[in-house]
Computed example of a mutant assay.
Amino acid sequence: MTIDIREAYRRALDDFGALVHRIAPGQWENPTPCAGWDVRTLVNHVVSESLCVPELFAGRSAAEIGGAFDGDLLGDDPLKAFDASAAAAVQATGEGGSLTAVVRLSFGDVPGAEYITELFADALIHTWDLARAIGADERLDPELVEACAAWFADAGDDYRQAGVMGDPHPVPAGTGLQARLLAAWGRAG
């Protein structure tokens, strides 16, 4: 990967956040490409994930965190909830030693760099999901798409076997990298 993964994650969260700030009042219930999720559920998912990041980098395990960040985390001010959680996650991943830290996830211990890569990929793909749901420009940052595609080429089968994503969609020859990446993630773009 040619871009520092911490920078890629920050940029992906920034892009997601820019869309969060564009959600119109009547769009929070719009369906997303994530089966069964509306816009509010999608944003809540990213907030929940972001709130876990500082805890995990502080040495707590996913089991210790448990359901602390389940339920509605957006409250009456979804923008504030997103902004605060994203800032905390970026700070935690940007601190010295984050790449070599051991992060204790539900399926086992992983190096910090791998966990940040997973966070980055999730934020990037969910940026497209949110753009699609609110009718915004669906083009993702090409440098981030390239970084994610390079990582996911090796990691995709593991994620499908773990049941965290659907089967890839077929794409015609000559399809652009973003469309191929989304198809690999089970998105019909």
Rank of each mutant, 00 (worst) to 15 (best):
residue 2 T to H: 05
residue 3 I to V: 11
residue 6 R to C: 03
residue 7 E to W: 02
residue 8 A to V: 06
residue 9 Y to V: 00
residue 9 Y to I: 00
residue 11 R to G: 08
residue 14 D to K: 07
residue 14 D to E: 15
residue 15 D to P: 00
residue 16 F to C: 11
residue 17 G to Y: 00
residue 19 L to V: 10
residue 20 V to I: 10
residue 22 R to D: 10
residue 22 R to H: 03
residue 23 I to P: 00
residue 25 P to N: 04
residue 26 G to F: 11
residue 26 G to E: 15
residue 26 G to N: 14
residue 27 Q to F: 07
residue 29 E to I: 06
residue 30 N to Y: 12
residue 31 P to V: 01
residue 31 P to C: 03
residue 32 T to P: 04
residue 32 T to F: 14
residue 34 C to L: 13
residue 35 A to S: 10
residue 36 G to R: 09
residue 37 W to G: 03
residue 39 V to P: 02
residue 41 T to Y: 04
residue 43 V to P: 02
residue 44 N to L: 08
residue 45 H to A: 03
residue 45 H to D: 03
residue 49 E to L: 14
residue 51 L to D: 01
residue 52 C to H: 05
residue 52 C to Y: 03
residue 53 V to E: 06
residue 55 E to K: 11
residue 55 E to N: 01
residue 55 E to H: 04
residue 56 L to E: 04
residue 57 F to P: 00
residue 58 A to E: 14
residue 64 E to A: 15
residue 65 I to R: 05
residue 69 F to A: 06
residue 70 D to M: 01
residue 77 D to Q: 07
residue 79 L to Y: 09
residue 82 F to A: 14
residue 83 D to T: 15
residue 85 S to N: 06
residue 85 S to V: 02
residue 88 A to K: 08
residue 89 A to M: 10
residue 89 A to R: 11
residue 93 T to E: 06
residue 93 T to V: 12
residue 95 E to C: 02
residue 96 G to M: 13
residue 97 G to K: 04
residue 99 L to Q: 12
residue 101 A to C: 08
residue 103 V to N: 03
residue 104 R to I: 10
residue 105 L to G: 07
residue 105 L to C: 09
residue 106 S to M: 11
residue 106 S to K: 13
residue 107 F to R: 13
residue 108 G to W: 12
residue 109 D to C: 06
residue 110 V to K: 13
residue 111 P to T: 01
residue 112 G to I: 06
residue 114 E to P: 00
residue 115 Y to W: 11
residue 115 Y to S: 07
residue 116 I to G: 07
residue 116 I to Q: 08
residue 118 E to N: 07
residue 119 L to D: 04
residue 120 F to D: 06
residue 122 D to M: 03
residue 122 D to W: 03
residue 123 A to C: 09
residue 125 I to P: 00
residue 127 T to N: 01
residue 127 T to W: 02
residue 129 D to M: 12
residue 130 L to I: 05
residue 132 R to M: 13
residue 133 A to I: 11
residue 134 I to V: 15
residue 136 A to K: 02
residue 137 D to C: 09
residue 137 D to I: 01
residue 142 P to F: 01
residue 142 P to Q: 02
residue 142 P to D: 06
residue 143 E to R: 13
residue 143 E to V: 12
residue 144 L to F: 00
residue 146 E to C: 13
residue 150 A to R: 08
residue 153 A to S: 14
residue 155 A to M: 12
residue 155 A to N: 12
residue 156 G to N: 10
residue 157 D to Y: 03
residue 158 D to L: 14
residue 163 G to N: 12
residue 165 M to P: 01
residue 165 M to F: 00
residue 167 D to V: 12
residue 167 D to F: 02
residue 168 P to R: 09
residue 171 V to C: 08
residue 171 V to G: 08
residue 174 G to F: 07
residue 175 T to G: 14
residue 175 T to P: 13
residue 177 L to E: 14
residue 177 L to M: 14
residue 179 A to T: 07
residue 180 R to W: 07
residue 183 A to C: 13
residue 183 A to Q: 09
residue 186 G to L: 10
residue 186 G to N: 09
residue 187 R to K: 13
residue 187 R to C: 10
residue 188 A to S: 14
residue 188 A to N: 14
residue 189 G to V: 15
